[in-house]
Protein backbone atom coordinates (compact mmCIF):
# COMPACT_ATOMS: atom_id res chain seq x y z
CA UNK A 1 0.00 0.00 0.00
CA UNK A 2 1.25 3.46 -0.83
CA UNK A 3 -0.19 6.95 -0.53
CA UNK A 4 -1.45 7.05 -4.12
CA UNK A 5 -3.36 3.81 -3.86
CA UNK A 6 -4.81 4.77 -0.50
CA UNK A 7 -5.98 8.20 -1.69
CA UNK A 8 -7.24 6.57 -4.89
CA UNK A 9 -9.31 4.10 -2.90
CA UNK A 10 -10.60 6.89 -0.67
CA UNK A 11 -11.56 8.97 -3.73
CA UNK A 12 -13.41 5.94 -5.07
CA UNK A 13 -15.18 5.42 -1.77
CA UNK A 14 -16.01 9.14 -1.58
CA UNK A 15 -17.54 9.05 -5.07
CA UNK A 16 -19.79 6.13 -4.16
CA UNK A 17 -20.91 7.80 -0.92
CA UNK A 18 -21.57 11.15 -2.66
CA UNK A 19 -23.79 9.40 -5.20
CA UNK A 20 -25.75 7.40 -2.64
CA UNK A 21 -26.24 10.45 -0.42
CA UNK A 22 -27.28 12.65 -3.35
CA UNK A 23 -29.95 10.16 -4.39
CA UNK A 24 -31.11 9.52 -0.84
CA UNK A 25 -31.26 13.16 0.34
CA UNK A 26 -32.91 14.56 -2.78
CA UNK A 27 -35.10 11.46 -3.18
CA UNK A 28 -34.17 11.65 -6.85
CA UNK A 29 -31.76 10.07 -9.28
CA UNK A 30 -32.29 12.57 -12.07
CA UNK A 31 -29.12 13.23 -14.01
CA UNK A 32 -27.66 9.85 -13.04
CA UNK A 33 -27.15 7.11 -15.61
CA UNK A 34 -28.61 3.85 -14.32
CA UNK A 35 -26.73 2.09 -17.09
CA UNK A 36 -23.32 3.25 -15.83
CA UNK A 37 -24.33 2.07 -12.37
CA UNK A 38 -25.35 -1.36 -13.70
CA UNK A 39 -22.01 -1.60 -15.51
CA UNK A 40 -20.08 -0.71 -12.34
CA UNK A 41 -22.03 -3.37 -10.45
CA UNK A 42 -21.06 -5.92 -13.11
CA UNK A 43 -17.44 -4.71 -12.79
CA UNK A 44 -17.32 -5.23 -9.02
CA UNK A 45 -19.07 -8.58 -9.04
CA UNK A 46 -16.84 -10.06 -11.75
CA UNK A 47 -13.66 -8.63 -10.24
CA UNK A 48 -14.25 -9.49 -6.62
CA UNK A 49 -15.13 -13.16 -7.06
CA UNK A 50 -11.77 -13.76 -5.39
CA UNK A 51 -13.49 -12.82 -2.14
CA UNK A 52 -14.48 -16.48 -2.12
CA UNK A 53 -11.06 -17.88 -3.00
CA UNK A 54 -8.28 -15.63 -1.66
CA UNK A 55 -7.86 -13.64 1.50
CA UNK A 56 -5.52 -10.65 1.18
CA UNK A 57 -6.27 -8.33 4.10
CA UNK A 58 -9.15 -7.06 6.20
CA UNK A 59 -8.91 -3.73 4.34
CA UNK A 60 -9.08 -5.46 0.96
CA UNK A 61 -12.05 -7.63 1.95
CA UNK A 62 -13.95 -4.76 3.56
CA UNK A 63 -13.51 -2.41 0.59
CA UNK A 64 -14.55 -5.09 -1.90
CA UNK A 65 -17.70 -5.82 0.07
CA UNK A 66 -18.48 -2.09 0.35
CA UNK A 67 -18.08 -1.60 -3.41
CA UNK A 68 -20.31 -4.55 -4.31
CA UNK A 69 -23.03 -3.75 -1.77
CA UNK A 70 -23.10 0.01 -2.42
CA UNK A 71 -23.28 -0.44 -6.18
CA UNK A 72 -26.16 -2.89 -5.78
CA UNK A 73 -27.87 -0.39 -3.47
CA UNK A 74 -27.40 2.40 -6.03
CA UNK A 75 -28.93 0.30 -8.80
CA UNK A 76 -31.82 -0.59 -6.51
CA UNK A 77 -32.47 3.09 -5.71
CA UNK A 78 -32.41 4.06 -9.40
CA UNK A 79 -34.48 1.22 -10.83
CA UNK A 80 -36.88 0.56 -7.96
CA UNK A 81 -37.17 3.03 -5.08
CA UNK A 82 -36.82 6.27 -7.04
CA UNK A 83 -37.50 4.98 -10.52
CA UNK A 84 -40.08 7.74 -11.16
CA UNK A 85 -37.20 10.25 -11.13
CA UNK A 86 -34.91 8.21 -13.40
CA UNK A 87 -34.03 9.99 -16.67
CA UNK A 88 -34.64 6.96 -18.85
CA UNK A 89 -35.32 9.07 -21.94
CA UNK A 90 -31.82 10.52 -21.80
CA UNK A 91 -30.05 7.37 -20.61
CA UNK A 92 -29.97 5.75 -24.04
CA UNK A 93 -26.39 4.53 -24.40
CA UNK A 94 -26.39 0.84 -25.40
CA UNK A 95 -24.65 -1.21 -22.71
CA UNK A 96 -23.91 -4.09 -25.09
CA UNK A 97 -21.60 -1.80 -27.08
CA UNK A 98 -19.34 -1.77 -24.04
CA UNK A 99 -19.94 -5.25 -22.61
CA UNK A 100 -19.43 -7.29 -25.77
CA UNK A 101 -16.11 -5.71 -26.83
CA UNK A 102 -14.88 -6.02 -23.23
CA UNK A 103 -15.68 -9.74 -23.24
CA UNK A 104 -13.93 -10.28 -26.58
CA UNK A 105 -10.87 -8.27 -25.51
CA UNK A 106 -10.67 -10.13 -22.18
CA UNK A 107 -10.71 -13.47 -24.01
CA UNK A 108 -7.92 -12.30 -26.32
CA UNK A 109 -5.67 -10.22 -24.05
CA UNK A 110 -5.31 -11.60 -20.52
CA UNK A 111 -2.57 -13.12 -18.41
CA UNK A 112 -4.01 -16.61 -18.06
CA UNK A 113 -6.86 -18.42 -19.72
CA UNK A 114 -8.80 -19.31 -16.59
CA UNK A 115 -12.35 -18.32 -15.64
CA UNK A 116 -11.26 -16.09 -12.74
CA UNK A 117 -8.51 -14.39 -14.70
CA UNK A 118 -10.67 -13.72 -17.78
CA UNK A 119 -13.46 -12.32 -15.57
CA UNK A 120 -10.95 -10.11 -13.73
CA UNK A 121 -9.57 -8.84 -17.05
CA UNK A 122 -13.11 -8.27 -18.38
CA UNK A 123 -13.87 -6.20 -15.27
CA UNK A 124 -10.76 -4.08 -15.84
CA UNK A 125 -11.70 -3.38 -19.47
CA UNK A 126 -15.37 -2.75 -18.67
CA UNK A 127 -14.52 -0.40 -15.81
CA UNK A 128 -12.42 1.71 -18.20
CA UNK A 129 -15.51 2.54 -20.27
CA UNK A 130 -18.36 2.08 -17.79
CA UNK A 131 -18.70 5.83 -17.24
CA UNK A 132 -19.54 6.48 -20.92
CA UNK A 133 -23.34 6.19 -20.48
CA UNK A 134 -23.09 8.78 -17.67
CA UNK A 135 -20.97 11.17 -19.75
CA UNK A 136 -23.34 10.58 -22.68
CA UNK A 137 -26.31 11.50 -20.46
CA UNK A 138 -24.58 14.70 -19.30
CA UNK A 139 -23.78 15.65 -22.90
CA UNK A 140 -27.37 14.94 -23.95
CA UNK A 141 -28.92 17.13 -21.27
CA UNK A 142 -26.07 19.65 -21.61
CA UNK A 143 -25.56 20.06 -17.87
CA UNK A 144 -24.98 18.30 -14.58
CA UNK A 145 -25.97 19.17 -11.03
CA UNK A 146 -23.03 20.35 -8.96
CA UNK A 147 -23.22 17.30 -6.71
CA UNK A 148 -23.11 15.03 -9.78
CA UNK A 149 -19.98 16.92 -10.90
CA UNK A 150 -18.35 16.24 -7.53
CA UNK A 151 -19.23 12.57 -7.93
CA UNK A 152 -17.65 12.43 -11.40
CA UNK A 153 -14.56 14.27 -10.22
CA UNK A 154 -13.99 11.88 -7.30
CA UNK A 155 -14.62 8.86 -9.52
CA UNK A 156 -12.26 10.12 -12.23
CA UNK A 157 -9.52 11.00 -9.76
CA UNK A 158 -9.47 7.46 -8.43
CA UNK A 159 -8.01 5.81 -11.52
CA UNK A 160 -5.68 8.76 -12.11
CA UNK A 161 -4.26 8.21 -8.61
CA UNK A 162 -3.93 4.50 -9.39
CA UNK A 163 -1.75 5.44 -12.36
CA UNK A 164 0.62 7.16 -9.93
CA UNK A 165 0.41 4.07 -7.71
CA UNK A 166 1.50 1.85 -10.64
CA UNK A 167 4.45 4.11 -11.38
CA UNK A 168 5.37 3.88 -7.70
CA UNK A 169 5.04 0.09 -7.66
CA UNK A 170 7.14 -0.23 -10.79
CA UNK A 171 10.02 1.72 -9.22
CA UNK A 172 9.85 0.43 -5.66
CA UNK A 173 8.35 -3.04 -5.96
CA UNK A 174 9.31 -4.01 -9.52
CA UNK A 175 5.62 -4.67 -10.10
CA UNK A 176 4.12 -4.15 -13.54
CA UNK A 177 0.74 -5.10 -14.97
CA UNK A 178 0.20 -3.69 -18.43
CA UNK A 179 -3.47 -4.65 -18.57
CA UNK A 180 -4.29 -2.50 -15.53
CA UNK A 181 -2.06 0.33 -16.69
CA UNK A 182 -3.38 0.66 -20.25
CA UNK A 183 -7.03 0.28 -19.16
CA UNK A 184 -6.50 2.70 -16.27
CA UNK A 185 -4.94 5.20 -18.64
CA UNK A 186 -7.88 4.96 -21.06
CA UNK A 187 -10.29 5.31 -18.12
CA UNK A 188 -8.55 8.46 -16.89
CA UNK A 189 -8.36 10.01 -20.38
CA UNK A 190 -12.13 9.64 -20.78
CA UNK A 191 -12.57 12.03 -17.86
CA UNK A 192 -10.17 14.70 -19.12
CA UNK A 193 -12.76 16.80 -20.91
CA UNK A 194 -14.93 16.67 -17.81
CA UNK A 195 -11.97 17.52 -15.51
CA UNK A 196 -11.37 20.65 -17.57
CA UNK A 197 -14.97 21.80 -17.22
CA UNK A 198 -14.98 20.90 -13.52
CA UNK A 199 -11.92 23.00 -12.73
CA UNK A 200 -12.87 25.96 -14.90
CA UNK A 201 -16.56 26.08 -13.93
CA UNK A 202 -17.67 24.06 -10.93
CA UNK A 203 -14.73 25.11 -8.73
CA UNK A 204 -15.56 28.71 -9.58
CA UNK A 205 -19.01 28.28 -8.16
CA UNK A 206 -20.84 27.80 -11.40
CA UNK A 207 -22.96 24.93 -12.56
CA UNK A 208 -21.50 22.45 -15.00
CA UNK A 209 -23.04 23.45 -18.31
CA UNK A 210 -21.55 22.22 -21.53
CA UNK A 211 -20.46 24.76 -24.14
CA UNK A 212 -23.05 25.00 -26.90
Amino acid sequence: MNIFRLTGDLAHLTAIIILLLKIWKTRSCSGISGKSQILFTVVYITRYLDLFTNYISAYNTLMKIIFVVSSLATVFLIYFKFKATYDRNHDTFRMEFLIIPSIILALLIRHEFTVMEVLWTFSIYLEAVAILPQLFLVSKTGEAETITSHYLFALGSYRGLYLLNWIWRYYFENFLDWISIVAGFVQTVLYCDFFYLYVTRVLHGRKLRLPA
Partner: peptide, 10 residues
Amino acid sequence: IRYTLLKDEL
Protein backbone atom coordinates in the same frame (compact mmCIF):
# COMPACT_ATOMS: atom_id res chain seq x y z
CA ILE B 1 9.30 -7.61 -13.53
CA ARG B 2 6.92 -9.33 -11.22
CA TYR B 3 3.26 -9.88 -12.00
CA THR B 4 1.06 -11.57 -9.45
CA LEU B 5 -2.19 -13.36 -10.08
CA LEU B 6 -3.08 -12.70 -6.47
CA LYS B 7 -4.82 -9.34 -6.88
CA ASP B 8 -4.19 -7.12 -3.91
CA GLU B 9 -5.48 -3.94 -5.60
CA LEU B 10 -9.08 -2.86 -5.80
